[in-house]
Simulated scan of single mutants.
Amino acid sequence: MADTADNASPSYLPAISKQVTELVLAGSISHAEQAFADAAEQHGDLVVAEVLETIPPHVTALHMAGFDGGKLSLATLLVPPKAWAASLAYIAATWNEDMIEDDPERIAESLFAHIHGVVFGTEDEERRRELLLEASASDFGATVFAIVFSLAPKEMLEVAGEVISKGSYLTAHSSSDNDVIPLAVALAQASEDGWDRALFELFPEFRHSADLADAEYSDDPDEEEPSVLQRSTKELLYRLRKQVPSTRTATGRTPRRTVGTGIFG
């Protein structure tokens, strides 16, 4: 596979973008991925990144929702940080209410697999930092990370304490082996603001990291209500669903008004 797109003419991009968009909206995710592979083979990997910058973010969300950390995807490996961050605004449109009601943790685990696959699919520390920085910079991004962190709320309090006490010397080590912890640590290292936003989205009664670091969950199994107020996974999933923008008021990255209409259908 070629490493650059030097031999590709810009005239190829509209055709490839149109092809990928139509395949994704038709539900042919595997064919869209093959179109990416063919374009990369012929013109270089950078073409995939350029296409992902030009197609609408809800199309990127629909495409990438078909892959998780266990499935290889060129889109996962090459998506530009800003394009990925924008697509996260639409990812909740791929869920239905029955899924949210019946098994919210399964959705959160799938979302974690998606984020983990994108962030840790690269060995480039600068790209990883940019991915986390862009993804956590918005309200919906904070909700996305809060959903993932809701899978391990006690551990998040531990990480909050580590952030306060160790600062830039923070590492992914903790008393727990939960898989979410390395992502939380990576986010805290990449963006202090992004980490705080996600943390306070999960724990809405706290507004200062130091106070949150002092909070503790009760170990009493008979205690009905946790002493720390947190939003449940289900509540956060619904919050993100309400934050999905209307494709009719999106940023206009496609001239076709009908693209993405009825995205919840």
Score class of each variant (00 low, 15 high):
1 M>D: 01
3 D>T: 11
6 D>Q: 06
11 S>W: 07
14 P>N: 04
19 Q>A: 09
20 V>C: 13
21 T>C: 11
22 E>G: 11
23 L>H: 02
24 V>F: 08
24 V>E: 01
25 L>F: 10
25 L>Q: 14
29 I>M: 05
31 H>C: 15
34 Q>T: 15
36 F>C: 06
38 D>G: 01
39 A>K: 07
42 Q>T: 07
42 Q>C: 07
42 Q>K: 05
42 Q>M: 11
43 H>P: 10
50 E>C: 12
54 T>S: 10
55 I>A: 04
58 H>I: 05
60 T>K: 09
60 T>E: 13
62 L>K: 14
63 H>L: 10
64 M>F: 12
66 G>Q: 06
69 G>Y: 01
69 G>H: 08
73 S>D: 09
75 A>R: 03
75 A>L: 12
76 T>P: 06
78 L>V: 00
78 L>H: 10
78 L>E: 13
81 P>G: 13
82 K>G: 03
83 A>V: 08
86 A>D: 13
88 L>F: 01
89 A>M: 12
90 Y>L: 13
91 I>K: 04
92 A>G: 01
95 W>N: 02
95 W>R: 01
96 N>A: 01
100 I>G: 13
100 I>L: 07
101 E>C: 11
101 E>V: 07
105 E>D: 15
109 E>F: 11
115 I>K: 05
121 G>M: 05
127 R>P: 01
127 R>W: 04
128 R>F: 12
130 E>Y: 15
130 E>T: 08
131 L>N: 03
131 L>H: 12
132 L>P: 02
133 L>M: 14
140 F>M: 15
140 F>G: 14
143 T>Y: 00
144 V>I: 12
145 F>M: 01
145 F>P: 03
146 A>L: 09
149 F>R: 03
149 F>E: 02
150 S>Q: 02
151 L>N: 05
152 A>I: 00
152 A>C: 09
156 M>T: 04
156 M>K: 01
159 V>K: 01
160 A>W: 02
161 G>Y: 02
165 S>Q: 09
166 K>E: 02
167 G>W: 05
170 L>C: 04
171 T>G: 09
175 S>I: 14
176 S>N: 11
177 D>S: 15
178 N>F: 09
178 N>M: 06
179 D>Q: 15
182 P>H: 07
183 L>V: 10
183 L>N: 05
184 A>S: 06
187 L>E: 00
191 S>L: 00
192 E>F: 00
192 E>N: 14
194 G>P: 00
195 W>S: 06
196 D>G: 02
196 D>E: 15
197 R>N: 15
199 L>K: 05
200 F>L: 00
200 F>T: 03
204 P>W: 04
210 A>T: 06
212 L>G: 00
212 L>Y: 00
215 A>Y: 00
216 E>M: 07
217 Y>D: 12
219 D>A: 08
221 P>K: 14
224 E>C: 07
225 E>W: 14
227 S>L: 12
228 V>P: 07
230 Q>T: 08
234 K>N: 07
235 E>N: 04
239 R>F: 11
244 V>Y: 03
250 A>Q: 06
254 T>E: 10
255 P>Q: 01
257 R>Y: 14
260 G>S: 08
261 T>A: 11
